[in-house]
């Protein structure tokens, strides 16, 4: 199966996911609202922080808004493709048994059929705040485009990392609670510059749990806090994280046996 077939499978899966989600209208609308809530939450928190204080040294109000919006976008993109709670439950109930027999790569199947449709509103609300902050900061279009390119690479690497970690969690705990908590933690951590967490956590958020490669470093680049050389390293690191996660995912899935037997 070629890339075109994989894309067709992805789009058909999205269509089905949307049809299913919309069938419970009340729940669907509430989830859409809930997904936008994390961004509203972040905007209120940052606004109050910058009202009562000078905020975080070296970061203006709009820079912080842009960073937290980027974090919401990353998490929105991840949840849209991999809703870890659903993945673990689906693995436990044998929900993937039929899907894994389809002639597509495991990663394609997982990313096509494991997402939370309503998380799109989280991504969109993040994008709106991002655009608003970029306008207020008068960022040149080319800077925004470069940012989005680095952000895209980082987000894809992180998506593969989360996919790998979700599979590992299933293998180790058979429980979704770890990933739920982990992603909640990541969401808070990524909304602020990772250097405030001290050298150990900064390193952790760059290499071990690479949230920084999708949020902090691209933002640091357009605000001139990080040199282009460092960004080149971050891009290489993103590719490495993505490739290692991809390989590890397949290695973990060799030990996969569904709850369905």
């Amino acid at each position: 199966m070629g890339i075109a077939d994989s894309i067709r499978f992805y789009l058909a899966s999205q269509y089905l996911a949307w049809k299913t989600a919309i069938s419970y209208r009340f729940s669907f609308v509430l989830w859409l609202i809930y997904s936008t809530f994390s961004e509203i939450y972040a905007v209120i928190a940052i606004t109050v922080i910058y009202t009562v204080s000078s905020g975080i040294a070296g970061w203006s109000y709009y820079q912080m808004l842009l960073l937290s919006a980027a974090a919401t976008m990353v998490l929105g993109a991840i949840y849209y493709h991999i809703e870890s709670r659903m993945v673990v439950n689906k693995m436990r109930n044998g929900g993937y048994d039929g899907l894994f027999s389809k002639p597509y790569g495991l990663v394609t199947i997982m990313l096509s059929t494991s997402g939370g449709t309503t998380e799109i509103s989280g991504f969109v609300s993040g994008l709106l705040v991002f655009a608003y902050s970029a306008i207020k900061l008068r960022l040149p279009l080319e800077s925004v485009l470069v940012y989005l390119a680095v952000f895209g690479i980082g987000t894809f690497a992180l998506l593969l990392f989360v996919l790998m970690l979700t599979a590992l969690t299933y293998l180790l705990f058979k429980s979704s609670s770890f990933m739920n908590n982990f992603l909640g933690f990541l969401s808070t951590a990524a909304s602020y510059p990772i250097n405030i967490y001290g050298p150990v956590f900064s390193l952790l958020f760059t290499v071990v749990v690479p949230i920084g490669i999708a949020t902090y470093y691209p933002a640091g680049m357009i605000f001139g806090k990080i040199s282009p050389g460092a960004i080149a390293i971050v891009i290489v690191l993103s590719v490495l994280v993505g490739a290692i996660s991809y390989k590890l995912f397949y290695a973990i899935m060799k030990h996969y046996s569904s709850g369905g037997g």
Partner: peptide, 24 residues
């Protein structure tokens, strides 16, 4: 694990507010 992550969330808030106080 739930308890551990709740604790980590508080730890993050402490880091964030330390940065705010130091920044201000």
């Amino acid at each position: 694990l739930n308890l551990f992550f709740k604790f980590l969330q508080v730890l993050l808030l402490i880091f964030i507010w330390t940065a705010i106080y130091l920044g201000t």
